[in-house]
Design a binder for these strands. Structure first.
Length: 502
DNA sequence: ATTTCGT
């Protein structure tokens, strides 16, 4: 693959940056301390001494990716980095040479898959994260991968292409499995995969709970790519409907949540163990925008000989949107803010998602806003499957402007028209009054400003939540501007203007 | 708390 760069990189253990200039290899890497994937990468200002990036003769590429630094450790680990803005770091586990993909042609994909990428998906070239991760995924020996990727950076494409290119189109048996935390995310991912697969003849289906269908009455799975939620996948496995013998690749979307003790860890591990029993060489990919400390320590124990890729915390999408806080004396004030400010000003701002922490809270807010005469819809896990599907479809079709949601949509939900996110309440760690759930906060924020679009987040904060808000600001080190709740529209107008929405 | 299922 990648014949264009053969002469440069055939003997180096390198993932080349997409826009790497061939002349730029400099020997400045010696002083770089070894950094493991589990280490904190944030808050420490520039650990990358920018003095070494001698900018005189440097052509700044449009992707802002400079040359890679290569450093051989005494161990087999090789360290790859991007000096200029080291927001993506890849760590390979051995000497397997990887060359980053400047184009999709570099990836040795089938012509049918390539056509799907260009014609159906209308992609032109790999995003930064795709350029680096895809060669790691697709180059034999197929190593496991732990990848932290921005919200909306195209990580779905990474594992979708991974699955599609590892599947043998002629073998009519399940060969790729993707596990997601919610039904909605599984359905969304399936839509991406099946669109990408248009010309390949590769089949895909969802393994999610359905309202009127019993698993036991279905035929054994012959679909090649399965995307689903833990419960249904487990069910299909235990009743023998899902053969694992031909499984080549296992993907965890929102991997940190899937492997969090407080999330789906038990289910995920059980599924993974079963697959490894039948298919010991099944490749495992872990993708998420966030990895909490405890999870990333755990994760490195369940995969071995893995490649890894991570980005700095401050690069994780928080800067793409403007964050605001509105101190509200009580809950009524929150409703008034939504009514008088967001709804009144929001006409041309695109769609809005209002997050609540509980199903009850979602229903209560729904009731209040409907009573005020507003047309909102609400989704939460307590609803019928068909109702959930309908509400998501209406929102994705643009028929609904405002959607109230629990954290069922906090992760991964991709709707590019969403420019405003409202935290009706702030995410808290389970059972902890004063401890914010930073990961959920970041994922909620990530629903706005998809793919670098403009966006604004309004945190509606009561006195009881003030400490949470302060901790969140401190944790991310990002400015959350205060907007007064009631004085005049002008403050909100200014906030929305600053966010680029008015 | 939230998610997913089973029972």
């Amino acid at each position: 693959m990648a014949d264009a760069t053969d002469s440069v990189s055939s003997t180096t253990n390198a993932v080349e940056a997409p826009e790497a200039k061939s002349e730029t290899k400099q020997s400045t890497a010696a002083a770089e301390p070894k950094r493991l994937w589990g280490d904190e990468v944030d808050d420490s200002s520039d650990e990358e001494p920018s003095a070494s990036t001698a900018s005189e003769d440097k052509v700044v590429s449009e992707l802002n990716v400079g040359e890679l630094r290569i450093e051989d450790e005494e161990k087999i680990n090789t360290f790859l980095d991007e000096p200029e803005d080291s927001n993506v770091t890849a760590v390979t586990s051995d000497k397997t040479p990887y060359t980053s993909a400047k184009t999709f042609e570099d990836l040795n994909l089938s012509p049918e898959l390539l056509k799907g990428i260009y014609v159906e998906m209308k992609f032109q070239k790999p995003s930064k994260i795709q350029a680096i991760s895809l060669p790691m995924i697709l180059t034999p020996p197929y190593k496991d991968l732990i990848a932290q990727a921005h919200n909306g950076s195209g990580k779905t494409t990474c594992f979708a292409l991974g699955m599609l290119s590892r599947v043998d189109p002629k073998l009519k048996a399940p060969q790729a499995l993707c596990i997601c935390p919610t039904r909605e995310l599984a359905i969304q991912n399936l839509q991406v995969v099946s669109k990408m697969a248009t010309y390949t003849g590769i089949s895909s289906e969802c393994a999610v709970p359905e309202e009127f269908t019993a698993s036991r009455s279905r035929a054994p799975v012959m679909t090649q790519i399965i995307i689903g939620t833990p419960g249904t996948i487990k069910k299909w496995m235990t009743i023998g409907k899902l053969s694992l013998r031909f499984m080549k690749i296992l993907v965890f979307d929102e991997a940190d949540h899937m492997l969090d003790a407080d999330g789906f860890r038990d289910d995920s591990l059980r599924i993974m163990r079963e697959i490894r029993k039948s298919s010991p060489h099944c490749q495992v990919l872990l993708f998420s925008a966030t990895f909490s400390d405890s999870v990333r320590n755990f994760v490195t124990r369940i995969v071995e000989d893995y490649n890894q890729l991570f980005v700095k915390k401050e690069e994780l999408s928080l800067d793409a949107v403007k964050q605001y806080k509105v101190y509200c004396p009580d809950e009524l004030a929150k409703v008034m803010v939504i009514r008088d400010r967001i709804f009144e000003l929001g006409e041309n701002m695109g769609q809005t998602i209002i997050f609540t922490s509980t199903k009850l809270g979602a229903s209560a807010l729904h009731k209040a806003l409907v009573e005020l005469g507003y047309d909102v819809s609400t989704i939460q896990g307590g609803l019928d499957m068909s109702a959930r599907d309908k509400i998501v479809k209406e929102f994705k079709d643009g028929l609904t402007q405002v959607l109230i949601s629990t954290d069922v949509l906090a992760r991964g939900f991709d709707q590019q028209q969403v420019n405003v996110v409202i935290n009706y309440d702030l995410p808290k760690k389970h059972g902890m009054r004063l401890e914010p759930d930073y990961e959920v906060y970041l994922h909620r924020v990530g629903r706005a400003g998809r793919f670098g679009r403009k966006g604004a987040v309004f945190n509606l904060v009561t006195a009881a939540e003030k400490a949470l808000m302060e901790k969140i600001e401190k944790h991310f080190g990002s400015q959350v501007m205060e907007v007064p709740p009631s004085n005049s529209e002008d403050d909100f107008k200014a906030a929305l203007k600053a966010a680029g929405l008015l």
